[in-house]
Design a protein around this nucleic acid. Structure first.
Length: 559
RNA sequence: UGGGGUAUAGCCAAGUGGUAAGGCAGCGGUUUUUGGUAUCGCCAUUCGCAGGUUCGAGUCCUGCUACCCCAGCCA
């Protein structure tokens, strides 16, 4: 994949460039460090593009390392899904997959080192007591009564914690820093807690697990990571990150740089809330096409290129509280698919048209381009017959002034075919339009009619040849820009109940062989992707990735 | 009323003392057998606010204001 989509400059790239030019860094090493407790989403894509993009730009390396320090919340299934997503986005991590748990032995030895240096101690306070002793944002904390145990006693207790002699919550290992620090993270942070849980990588070997703070920076140091890029909420942890690096005999000195996380309107990027939507079966799994998960976007029809392009467009800064317009994402996928998706005609809401001056036995087949601007794409065969389907939206019995489509007595161009005129409207018993009787102007194939201008062009499918397709029309999952804005209110109240509308349509014959994940532009309608789970030959299911821009809808809206 | 951050157009975002890039959205024209695409044009006398320094300030100084993050044995 080209590095074009991951090369936009930003403050982090500039800083690293300066360091490289000044000779302060040799080989740049970054890492993408997900916790395997859920699926990756568009916010992670931003981080992935940054980390892998930086490594690529400076001819360095980017590691994939699972931050697996909390076995209670993590699963192998998430690890598999995350690897798949990163690969699908088009990135290759350097070396094998890494795990923080690979370093548990070293981390434990370093914990002992801190104890020996009188920089860590075992605390018997309960979780509630620890919170109480920690103080508040405005008041300093107080030292734990267990803070001054001897190194030998601490070493012994730590060893027994590891051996599983104590119950969960009974003891923790804490760094001895400063209970009065205005930075709460420095008030004797917890290094190890007891968890009698089976770990997906290390099995039953450990009864104690390191905290994020104690594991992350040291893992970076072990791997030779030079730049540890993370989001803004870890800014307050940086002094602690550096404290460990300075107080431990680590093999390298990584530096943490923070950037703002992505907020996208009309969507959620909280892993906890996404998980809830999945577990409550409000959506169809982690890869539901309405979710901003990488796998959901993939199933929806987004391309890796479009996601990388989007990440380039939004940039990387330290400005927080912003909200990116989802229109940017739509733009990114439209531009990719405009260039690369083959075209087809598909009627979503069929209305029968009978061409009265065409014989019932008549059939002609056009060979039409797969893409209007790309002759490298295969052509498709398009049969034309007496009876056709068109979209109901393309007919109005009483059209407004600027309606260029079909109406009684009005002419329209059938895409790739003739100009027809609507002569008669046939209604059913309920008064609904059931069928249109039209006549063909046979002197209009590949040329404009004489003496008049026909501005409208509509898509159509031969009734004798069309193939049935199920089309899933997706829209934003939420009706408001920030569904989780009110912390107290339930974000589920803002669910868009029309976020999925399924219709039965009729596609042109070339669609019959569509493979799962194959993408098309349904001309005049939008971009669609054959569902990777449900679609197969004989039972076609398409997901709408995004609609085409619709200036007619705008005109109508304005009245 | 603790600490750490951030403010440039409706949205994202360049800009590092020399006179406000780019993209999205929007608006208008041209082209068009997709009301799509492409293409052309318009869209910040001003950078959260108020002062100050300077020949010159989005950039430096002072003081305000708004918003985000932190009191998990989550990451």
């Amino acid at each position: 994949m080209s590095n074009e989509s991951t090369s936009a400059p930003n403050f982090i790239r500039n800083q690293i460039r300066d360091e490289v030019e000044a000779g302060r860094v040799d080989t740049v090493v970054t890492r993408f460090p997900p916790e395997p407790n859920g699926f990756l989403h568009i916010g992670h894509a931003k981080s992935i593009c940054l980390n892998f993009g930086v490594a690529e730009q400076f001819d360095g390396a980017c590691h994939l390392r699972f931050d697996d320090t909390n076995p209670a919340k993590e699963e192998q299934a998430y690890i598999d899904a995350i690897k798949e997503d990163v690969s699908w986005l088009g990135f290759q991590w350097s070396g094998g997959v890494r795990y923080a748990s690979d370093y548990f032995d070293q981390l434990y030895a370093w914990a002992q080192h801190l104890v020996r240096e009188d920089k860590a101690y075992v605390d018997d306070l309960s979780p509630d007591e620890i919170r109480e002793y920690r103080g508040t944002l405005t008041e300093p904390g107080r030292p734990s009564p267990y803070r001054d145990r001897s190194a030998d006693e601490n070493l012994d207790l730590l060893e027994r914690m590891r051996a599983g002699e104590f119950a969960e919550g009974e003891k923790v290992l804490r760094a001895k820093i400063d209970m009065a620090s205005p930075n709460i993270n420095l008030r004797d942070p917890i290094l190890y807690r007891i968890r009698h849980a089976r770990h997906h990588q290390t099995g039953d070997k450990w009864k104690i697990y390191p905290s994020y703070d104690f594991a992350h920076g040291q893992s970076d140091a072990i791997e030779g990571v030079t730049h540890s890029l993370c989001t803004l909420e870890f800014e307050d942890h940086r002094p602690l990150y550096e404290w460990f690096i300075e107080n431990l005999p680590v093999p390298s000195t990584p530096r943490q740089i923070e950037f703002a996380r992505l907020n996208l309107n009309y969507t959620l990027t909280s892993k906890r809330k996404l998980k809830l939507l999945v577990e409550e079966e409000i959506v169809d799994g982690w890869d539901d096409p309405r979710l901003p998960t990488i796998s959901g976007m993939r199933r929806r029809g987004y391309t890796p290129t479009s996601i990388r392009k989007f990440c380039e467009m939004i940039g990387v800064t330290r400005a927080d509280g912003g909200l990116v317009d989802i229109a940017m994402l739509y733009h990114a996928i439209r531009t990719d698919l405009e260039d690369n998706a083959p075209r087809a005609m598909c009627v979503l809401n069929p209305l029968k048209v009978v061409l009265t001056n065409v014989e019932a036995s008549h059939e002609e087949v056009y060979e039409v381009p797969g893409h209007p601007a790309r002759d490298d794409m295969e052509t498709r065969r398009l049969p034309f017959t007496r009876e056709l389907w068109i979209d109901r939206d393309d007919f109005m019995e009483e059209p407004p002034k600027k309606f260029f489509r079909l109406a009684p007595g009005q002419e329209v161009r059938l895409r790739n075919s003739y100009v027809i005129r609507c002569d008669e409207v046939i209604k059913d018993d309920a008064g609904e339009v059931a069928e249109l009787r039209c006549s063909v102007d046979f002197d209009t194939l590949g040329k404009n009619p004489e003496g008049r201008k026909v501005k409208g062009v509509i898509h159509w499918v031969s009734a004798a040849h069309g193939v049935p397709v199920e089309v899933r029309l997706y829209d934003n999952l939420f009706t408001v820009e920030q569904p989780d804005k009110d912390r107290d209110a339930d974000f589920l109240e803002h669910l868009n109940h029309e976020s999925l509308v399924t219709v039965q349509g009729i596609g042109e014959p070339s669609l019959a062989t569509a493979k799962p994940e194959e993408r098309f532009q349904f001309e005049r309608v939008g971009y669609f992707c054959a569902d990777r789970h449900a679609s197969r030959e004989g039972r076609l299911v398409f997901n709408r990735t995004v609609g085409l821009k619709d200036s007619w809808a705008k005109i109508q809206k304005k009245g």
